[in-house]
């Protein structure tokens, strides 16, 4: 149990540092900004208490907001994504029961499940974030385009991340 907590704590710091000092600094064709930090929400265990899921999302969002000068923006989007996570898992899974203490990854789920799961949640997060940031529907398609392109870049990074954290299943 303690080992799991330490692992997630380390993951939290690594993702925040990567996001703030690497991803926020690189420019990919001007307006694409991948948000890899959502990976933290994606790899939380299946059986995590729902209130804990929301509280972790809140802490993660506030941390990112502090560095990005966008008080509340990332917090709101990350909360939205965390709120929808149990529902999305329920809808896209055939087998509704999961072994306790496992987390979503390539070692216990097939790759099409992982792809669907991450694309849906990343796209929901990014769309919510970019529309909240623009705070209007006047440039609807420009904002939508931004969220789609950024989602794809984030997804590429997240999928790489899944390869790194999903060790072959051992007992």
């Amino acid at each position: 149990m303690r080992k799991t907590i330490l692992k997630y704590l380390a993951g939290f710091f690594i993702l925040v540092v990567l996001q703030v000092f690497v991803l926020n600094k690189i420019q990919i064709s001007g307006y694409i900004n991948p948000f890899l930090y959502v990976f933290f929400i994606l790899i939380l265990p299946f059986d995590i208490p729902k209130y804990l899921l929301l509280i972790l999302a809140f802490i993660l969002g506030v941390t990112i907001d502090m560095f990005c000068d966008t008080a509340g923006l990332h917090t709101s989007a990350t909360l939205f994504m965390a709120f929808l996570r149990p529902g999305v898992i329920h809808v896209i899974s055939v087998k509704k029961e999961f072994e306790p203490k496992t987390f979503p990854g390539l070692h216990n789920m097939n790759s099409s499940w992982v792809i669907t799961y991450s694309i849906i949640l990343i796209f929901l997060h990014h769309t919510f974030l970019f529309f909240l940031e623009a705070f209007s529907f006047t440039q609807f398609f420009a904002t939508l385009w931004r969220s789609i392109v950024s989602s794809l870049v984030t997804f590429a990074l997240v999928f790489t991340g899944f390869f790194l954290v999903s060790k072959p299943y051992r007992r």
Binding site: Y51, I55, F58, V62, D65, A71, G72, T75, S76, L79
Partner: peptide, 27 residues
């Protein structure tokens, strides 16, 4: 809990939109 935390986030967002922010969540 989702509604409550989301409300906190929106309060931060709205305060931030004021020209002078007196809020600690910034760089």
């Amino acid at each position: 809990l989702f509604i409550a935390l989301q409300a906190v986030a929106f309060i931060m967002l709205i305060q931030n939109n004021h020209y002078h922010r007196s809020f600690w969540i910034n760089s």
